[in-house]
Amino acid sequence: MSIKKILSISGKPGLFELKVQTRTGFVAESLLDGKKITVGLRANVSLLSEIAVYTYSEEVRLAEVFKAIATKENEGLALSHKESDDQLKAYFREILPEYDEDRVYISDIKKVLNWYNLLQPKGFVSMEALTAEKVSEPSKDEVSE
């Protein structure tokens, strides 16, 4: 499984898997409850495969961050996004030592860890799946908003 078809939809909780594209938008299935929804073309949607995290020298693809978490946790769950801000920052520093603290906010760290913990039990962030991810150029659609 791959994160190439996993979406974050603004205003909707959780993550979604792209199922079918239509003339007026697309159909997506919630990874939380399995319900299918239709989403119009005007919705603010981000593909996880296009999101990157700022570091001091470059932008690191979210798939690479997930791979670092999977390596650290031996493909288990990450630290909960509900931990204290200091614990979250220290944990994120362990997995991505060069992340830019001025441009990556605590809300971004919580989002990344929450997404990882949602995707991990479903097999989307196994080492095998993440190694197969095709690396492409980062877009303007960053984790930091």
Rank of each mutant, 00 (worst) to 15 (best):
K134V: 14
S57D: 15
R61C: 02
R23C: 06
S84G: 01
E17V: 10
L77G: 12
A52N: 11
L15Q: 03
K5E: 10
K72W: 05
P138N: 01
S84V: 08
E64P: 07
G34P: 04
F92H: 02
I51L: 13
A70N: 01
E58Q: 13
N44Q: 12
E64C: 12
K5C: 04
A70P: 04
Q21P: 00
K110R: 15
A129M: 07
L118S: 09
V45T: 09
S107T: 10
G123T: 01
I37L: 14
S80V: 03
K5F: 09
S46E: 09
E59I: 00
K82M: 11
T71W: 00
F66G: 03
T131G: 14
A78P: 09
L130W: 00
Q21R: 15
R93N: 09
H81Q: 14
P138Y: 02
V104M: 02
T24V: 13
V45F: 06
A43L: 06
A43N: 10
A43V: 08
S46P: 00
E17H: 05
L31I: 07
D141C: 07
L7D: 00
A70K: 06
K110M: 04
K111F: 15
A43C: 06
E101M: 07
V39T: 14
A90M: 07
Q21D: 10
N117H: 03
S46L: 11
S49I: 13
L18N: 02
R23I: 07
T22W: 02
P13G: 07
R23K: 15
M127Q: 13
F26G: 01
E75R: 06
A78L: 07
F66I: 05
V135Q: 04
A129K: 01
T24F: 12
V20R: 15
R61L: 15
K72I: 03
A68G: 02
S49N: 12
S57M: 10
E17W: 00
A70H: 04
Q87H: 10
K19M: 11
L41M: 09
S84N: 09
